[in-house]
Amino acid sequence: MFNEIYELVTGPLAWIGWGIFLLGSVYKLASLWSLAKKKDTSSIYYTKAKFGLRSIAQWSLPFGTLGWRETPSVTVVTFVFHICLILVPIFLSAHVILWEEWFGVSIPALPNHVADVMTLLVIAGGTFFAWRRFSVPEVAFVTSGHDWFVLGVVVAPFLTGFLAYHQIFNYEVMIVLHVITGIAWLALIPFTRLSHMLVSWYSRAYIGSEFQGVRHCKDW
């Protein structure tokens, strides 16, 4: 029974998940670009690679901007959270095997204990963000069900993966939940606030260009 479910979630379901993620992302980007060309031509006109890259670089530096300096705890957690969030799913040794198996791609793996700590950091980061959504008035005021859902979707694969790896609770249930939540995580990127992963590079580059190019002023 377990084997069949496992085969299902790592087989057809995974392909569907990847398909939704990839096609959904292409659709999202293409539809936004086409809308922008129709309605936001001036924004496209002012966007310049030089200013955009400068802005992205500056905002990629922890404490490199006024905003990052103003709330240090959020800055530290945000950077650690996002770095671990991206690196662990790609370079976890168990996933490295899957890359090889599914796509024939061979990449180096993170040592297991490092990946384990990074996973905990994602869970801790998610907990911190959840605490902010509850307790910090300016965050609580603007938090809706969507935000909780997205936070849950993001942290769930890490939590279930951690529990499965350490064989806490029922391994078989956990690993299946891990795969399902991981697929949901991917598939939901184009259709939720997680789409900031896809498009915020451009909104950053655009506003950076407006500031540096038109307003002769830094945007950080």
């Binding site: 809308l35 309605k39 103003e70 902010r132 910090v136 606030r193 498009v199």
Partner: peptide, 17 residues
């Protein structure tokens, strides 16, 4: 309005920063 407002609306993660 167009993609600009849509992107702002869709991607704001409500961090409160």
């Amino acid at each position: 309005t167009g993609a600009k407002l849509k992107v702002y609306h869709d991607t704001c993660v409500r961090c409160g920063l």
